[in-house]
Amino acid sequence: MSATLTDETLIQQAQAGRQSAFSILVKRYEQYVYTLALRFVKNREDADEVAQDCFLRMFRYLPDFRGEAKFSTWLYRIVYSTSMNFLRKQRPEILSLDDDERPVRLGDHSAPDASAGLERQDLNASLQRAIDQLLPDDAGIITLFYMYDHNLEEICEIMEITMSNAKTKLCRARQRLKLIVEHKFADQIGI
């Protein structure tokens, strides 16, 4: 039953105060919100906390949602800003999340060792690990564009950047991902 309800219907019901509509929205988007938060904060516990915070913000601001943007775009914008606020508070060493000159950290020992049994893992897991090593913005834009199928206009809205900036970020994110994959996971992914 809940699967047949559109986002618009659920939003209207939630705006009218129906708790069940809130609950359905959470269940419908929990994995998307959690995955995106995880791409930014890189830690499952933190991502859980951030995702929960995102939904609470969503509930608070839902009465103001007028449907001018797609609901998912609006929600992912909340995820982006909540994650960035979290990172600024928790990890001040990430001075700039928009640092296009920051090199790819191929020698990052916090990441799992590529030689440690990766052969047994499937392609998705390898690619997942490669994405985990990207900077938050890079991992976010890759996820939004390729996994969530959002176009660049929507990404500009979510990440509050210009179109040319979005294109540059996407291009650099692809290049960095390619570098990581080529150096660490080429055997698994077959590149």
Partner: peptide
Amino acid sequence: MLSSMPLEKPRAGFADRVM
């Protein structure tokens, strides 16, 4: 390959905790 990557799942009971 990128678009077919599975979504991550939060800890069990996530929706209940949020509500």
